[in-house]
């Protein structure tokens, strides 16, 4: 690929690192208005909703059923009180059986 590739990599690394590093270091110890910190404390749960849907449904291209079974299994195990690891391994297990026979 040549030197251009490495320059591109440097650029990609920089623009990936900045959004991660700047808020954690520059906002450190700053007191934010209550409404702003309220919104920020909402972010994790909102982001999870946005990361899961709709992507999980289309995780296997052309097979919506796969995603729906996966989502349903994960929600079920999680709802029954399984921790994160049982949810992950249980869902992989169910889908492995499903894709083994389909």
């Amino acid at each position: 690929m040549g030197p251009t590739y490495w320059w591109m990599l440097f650029g990609m690394a920089l623009v990936t690192y900045i959004p991660r590093m700047v808020p954690l270091t520059f906002l450190d110890g700053k007191e934010l208005p209550p409404i702003v910190s309220g919104v920020l404390s909402n972010i994790p749960y909102a982001v999870l909703g946005a990361l899961i849907f709709p992507a999980i449904i289309f995780v296997q291209e052309g097979n919506i059923l796969f995603g729906i079974i996966g989502a349903a299994t994960a929600f079920l195990i999680a709802f029954l009180g399984g921790g994160v690891m049982p949810v992950v391994l249980g869902t992989i297990g169910v889908l492995a059986i499903y894709s083994f026979f389909m």
Partner: peptide
């Protein structure tokens, strides 16, 4: 094995659900 590779594609989404549901 293909079926396992396919099944594992769900892992991160399952993890997100595992983190979200208790909350």
């Amino acid at each position: 094995p293909e079926f396992l590779q396919v099944a594992m594609s769900i892992a991160l989404y399952a993890m997100f659900i595992g983190l979200l549901v208790p909350a």
